[in-house]
Amino acid sequence: MATAAEHQTARSEADQAAADAARTAAHTAAFDAAVAADERIEPRDWMPDAYRASLVRQIAQHAHSEIIGMQPEANWITRAPSLRRKAILMAKVQDEAGHGLYLYSAAETLGASRDELLDKLHSGRQKYSSIFNYPTLTWADVGAIGWLVDGAAITNQVPLCRCSYGPYARAMVRVCKEESFHQRQGYESLLALSRGTEAQHAMAQDAVDRWWWPSLMMFGPPDDESSHSEQSMTWKIKRHSNDELRQRFVDICVPQAESLGLTLPDPDLVWNEERGHHDFGAIDWTEFWAVLKGNGPCNEQRITQRRNAHEEGAWVREAAAAFAAKHGEAKA
């Protein structure tokens, strides 16, 4: 038979649970109202655990993409064909490292740590954009990445400037400004090639042929196969569906390709008067999923280089920490 004290405890636990549930319901209602009113959620605000987890995942993978994305372009820094192009490329790769830093900082406002996120990247538990698993085989690839890959990234990221989570939205404002600049430089670089010698023109066309479809895949799986989309749209992390953004990108690229004097490698690409959009051919989703699962042309190489840089740099980070501990300065 339960004692009076035990009854008392049981009652207070039940009261506690009811109070917690009421508080969560109130928090949830306030959160939903704030999101509905297009207010920004800030780090100290209450937020559903799943919203926090979803943002950490998305922001971390975005940050990882910036730092893995340095590799295909850095591949050409030492071979850039003019000093002007070399300076532009170096500045771009530097900006990408900076974007990685903004984004890890944004993720840290949600309680994740950069070290833990990097560890997840290195161990394959978090992903990065599938586009960076393609190789840069010629100089023109650098221009094609600027035009198409940065172009796709901007199409994806501009709506993120209005994302419901404040620190992410603000990081995106800064990132988008710099990305737009890179994109114009990429376009201008391709234009120089397209109007250059026959060999340069052929190099530019070959690069566009290889980067076009992977760029379209950057918008993610079709809407009916996108696992996170619906919830992300409700939370206003995402504002548009994958397919909407992909369509917007195609519509932007077609006239740009024309003024570049280059063709897009899609025989089914045609203006559809009725829809007011371009129809385009089927994406090879088998390739997309293969790349995403680690079987693209450079997956192994990219992650190995990243891991090596991290592991070979361990003694440097340890030295900085030891020095900071001895001299009481902030960790480097």
């Binding site: 730092i67 590799q71 790769v93 900076g98 280089q305 070979e312 740099g313 440097v316």
Partner: peptide, 11 residues
């Protein structure tokens, strides 16, 4: 580029 020990050093 892409090989530095820490992101701040990439920059």
């Amino acid at each position: 580029a892409g090989h530095a020990p820490v992101l701040e050093e990439e920059v």
